[in-house]
């Protein structure tokens, strides 16, 4: 099926190009940080596994953030240690938001699916996230990063689907969705073209939330040494390894912690800036 004129990705891209400066300013930090994390391993000044200073050395000219517990360059490890975390978290957030959006929208159009999804979500929500991660990764020891991502998705969807389902329900009851259903549209069209586009702002907010939750989960897994293993560079692993020397070289702990925090903040800022203005809603006031 050919998309109608004026729809689809071209329009989204052209809208982004015409976006006001304010939006650009809010999206920029997230873009920069994610890009830096992705290209970091290539621009790191030193190798991540060879000592260049004394253990927990204070910052010097050659190592601006000092050394870690084995005297390795903290800056290089910081640059190299973000890629996996960012990629895993983005992947988890996209999968969780996408699955929840589709399940929620389908549930809103087909009530029996909605009830089934809701009951299943209720049961899964009883499982604490960290326990779930441990269960999945211990029962699948060779899974590594993939096991962490799988666990984070399974544990994240139940929360997200309740939100998405709740937001989709009133849209499924609007005149235009009914008109489309009465006009003979299939479920797929109702969900993809009629409901999801009107959930954009909710879904973007949800994406931001799920990204933070994913960073938290992936970092927790790293901290528990489920996933990346030494000597790999990883922000969560760095916090754990260097916590003993925090008084000698605070940067070895503060820098990766700040990176995790900034990442979560900036992605949320970008998500809320990208949410559409209220103009295309059926406006009712007062």
């Amino acid at each position: 099926m050919r998309p109608a004129r004026g729809e689809g990705p071209e329009r989204a891209v052209s809208a982004a190009l015409r976006a006001p400066l304010g939006t650009l300013v809010k999206v920029l930090p997230a873009l920069l940080l994610v890009t830096l994390a992705l290209v970091g391993p290539w621009i790191a000044p030193h190798a991540i596994d060879t000592p260049v200073t004394a253990p927990y050395a204070a910052p010097v000219g050659d190592a601006p953030l000092g050394g870690d517990q084995l005297g390795r360059d903290v800056l290089s490890r910081l640059l190299a240690g973000g890629r996996e975390l960012v990629l895993s978290s983005l992947l988890v957030a996209v999968l969780v938001t996408g699955t929840a959006a589709v399940l929620g929208a389908v549930g809103a159009v087909r009530p029996w699916v909605g009830r089934l999804v809701e009951r299943t979500a209720d049961v899964l929500m009883l499982l604490p996230a960290v326990l779930g991660i441990l269960l999945v990764t211990l029962s699948w020891p060779g899974g590594g990063r993939l096991a962490v991502v799988a666990a984070a998705v399974v544990l994240g969807v139940p929360y997200a689907v309740r939100l998405a389902g709740g937001a989709a329900a009133p849209i499924a009851a609007t005149g235009y969705v009914e008109a489309a259903a009465a006009g003979g549209e299939r479920l797929r069209y109702l969900v993809v073209r009629e409901i999801l586009p009107n959930l954009r702002s909710t879904l973007l907010a949800l994406f931001g939330l799920r990204f933070v939750a994913a960073v938290y989960l992936v970092a927790t897994a790293g901290f528990l040494q489920v996933g990346p293993q030494p000597p790999a560079a990883d922000w969560a692993l760095m916090i754990r390894e260097n916590s003993a020397g925090i008084l000698l070289n605070p940067w070895a702990v503060v820098a990766p912690s700040a990176a995790v925090g900034l990442l979560a903040l900036s992605v949320n800022l970008a998500a809320s800036a990208l949410a559409p203005q209220t103009g295309r809603k059926a406006v009712t006031v007062l």
């Binding site: 109608a4 004129r5 004026g6 609007t174 005149g175 235009y176 009465a182 073209r193 009107n198 295309r280």
Partner: peptide, 28 residues
């Protein structure tokens, strides 16, 4: 086909009028 009482909710706010009117032409 039904034309409903409330015109405010009858059209998808995310789609142009042309897309809304053109859709039944393609579908059927």
């Amino acid at each position: 086909q039904l034309v409903t009482q409330n015109p405010l909710g009858a059209l998808n706010p995310s789609r142009t009028i042309g897309a809304a009117v053109g859709r039944p032409l393609r579908l059927h």
